[in-house]
Simulated scan of single mutants.
Amino acid sequence: MRVRTEAKRELILKTAGTAFMELGYEGTSMAEIAARVDCSKATLYGYFASKEELFLGVIAHGVGSAVDPLLDELFASAGDAPETVLRRFGERYLVVTLAPDAIAMKRLIIAQMSDPELARRFWELGPRRYLDALEKYMVAATGAGRLDVDDPKLAAQQLAALYDAETSSGGLFAGGQTFTREYITRIVTYAVRAFLRMYGSR
């Protein structure tokens, strides 16, 4: 009987992530990953039933380790001054999501969006959780008298768009572009100012 371990799962995810980045999704096989992990394909399939499941596992692992703590902290700070909270969150979030490896992974994901089921599951793993966390913050901060938001879902989408306004296209399509901490601070400052003009407490 094979015993699954968390350490082995972590190794598989890390190794698979590197392989997908180097070879692309189509160019990466389960046999290639098994060889890199130094395990049998049967062992690999014991952890992940298919290449698609492994690819989604790589995405979920990256999102969870990097972004989940930020989302938890955001909601916990609903009673604090929104300008401070949203600037801190925006800067930390963009530092993570605009890192070169994160942008490369985003390009890899977009290349697979012709598969509607994969696109849907990626949406559930990443963007939806991000928007849901922002919406949850809008509700809590409005309840605490810190914001004046009557449509939390719309406000969450607008804030996300403001954060991404100067970076989304550049990060994906301008090869080699880097985003300095100073640049991120500037765009987040303007994004939060614009948001609070619409939704700051009256």
Rank of each mutant, 00 (worst) to 15 (best):
Ala78Gln: 04
Thr189Trp: 12
Gly171Tyr: 04
Glu10Gly: 06
Ile110Lys: 06
Glu6Thr: 13
Met30Ala: 08
Thr167Asp: 07
Val58Arg: 11
Gly90Pro: 03
Arg4Lys: 15
Phe195Ala: 01
Glu53Asn: 12
Asp115Ala: 07
Asp72Trp: 01
Glu83Arg: 15
Ala99Asp: 14
Lys153Ile: 01
Ile33Ser: 13
Leu108Gly: 06
Ala60Gly: 12
Leu108Ala: 13
Phe89Ala: 00
Thr15Lys: 02
Ile12Trp: 00
Ala42Thr: 15
Ile184Arg: 09
Ile103Phe: 03
Gly171Arg: 00
Leu71Trp: 02
Pro100Asn: 00
Asp150Gln: 12
Ser77Thr: 02
Ile187Pro: 11
Glu53Val: 07
Asp101His: 00
Gly145Ile: 02
Ala66Gln: 13
Tyr183Asp: 09
Pro116Cys: 04
Glu117Val: 10
Glu32Met: 15
Glu124Tyr: 04
Arg2Glu: 09
Glu53Ala: 15
Phe179Lys: 11
Pro100His: 00
Val139Thr: 04
Asp72Met: 02
Ala140Ile: 06
Leu86Met: 08
Ala102Gly: 03
Thr167Leu: 08
Ser168Cys: 11
Lys136Phe: 09
Val139Ser: 00
Val67Tyr: 01
Val85Leu: 02
Gly171Val: 04
Ala191Gly: 11
Ala140Cys: 07
Ala104Asp: 13
Ser169His: 11
Lys51Trp: 09
Ala156Asn: 07
Asp132Asn: 12
Met105Ile: 09
Leu23Asp: 15
Pro100Glu: 07
Ala102Gln: 07
Ser168Lys: 15
Asp80Leu: 10
Ala165Ser: 07
Arg202Lys: 13
Ile187Glu: 02
Met138Trp: 05
Met113Gln: 09
Glu117Ala: 14
Glu10Trp: 03
Thr43Glu: 10
Phe20Glu: 00
Ala66Asn: 13
Arg9Ala: 10
Ala140Asn: 05
Pro82Gln: 01
Arg129His: 03
Lys8Tyr: 04
Pro69Tyr: 04
Tyr45Pro: 10
Gln158Met: 13
Tyr47Asp: 08
Ala194Gln: 11
Glu73Ser: 10
Ser168Ile: 14
Val3Gly: 08
Glu91Cys: 08
Ala156Pro: 10
Thr84Tyr: 02
Leu94Tyr: 08
Asp115Met: 05
Arg107Ile: 14
Ser201Tyr: 08
Met21Trp: 04
Lys8Phe: 06
Leu70Ile: 03
Arg92Glu: 12
Ser114Glu: 13
Leu94Ile: 02
Val192Ile: 05
Lys8Trp: 05
Thr5His: 07
Asp164Ala: 15
Ala133Pro: 08
Ala19Met: 08
Pro116Lys: 04
Glu83Tyr: 07
Glu10Pro: 02
Val139Phe: 07
Phe75Ala: 15
Ala155Phe: 11
Ser40Val: 13
Ser65Trp: 01
Ala42Lys: 15
Ser169Tyr: 13
Ala140Gly: 06
Phe179Arg: 10
Glu135Gln: 14
Ala66Phe: 04
Leu44His: 05
Pro100Arg: 01
Ala191Pro: 06
Glu124Cys: 03
Ser29Pro: 07
Ile110Ala: 15
Arg88Glu: 12
Ser201Gln: 14
Leu11Tyr: 03
Arg2Lys: 11
Gly170Thr: 14
Gly62Ser: 06
Ile184Asn: 09
Tyr93Asn: 04
Arg88Leu: 02
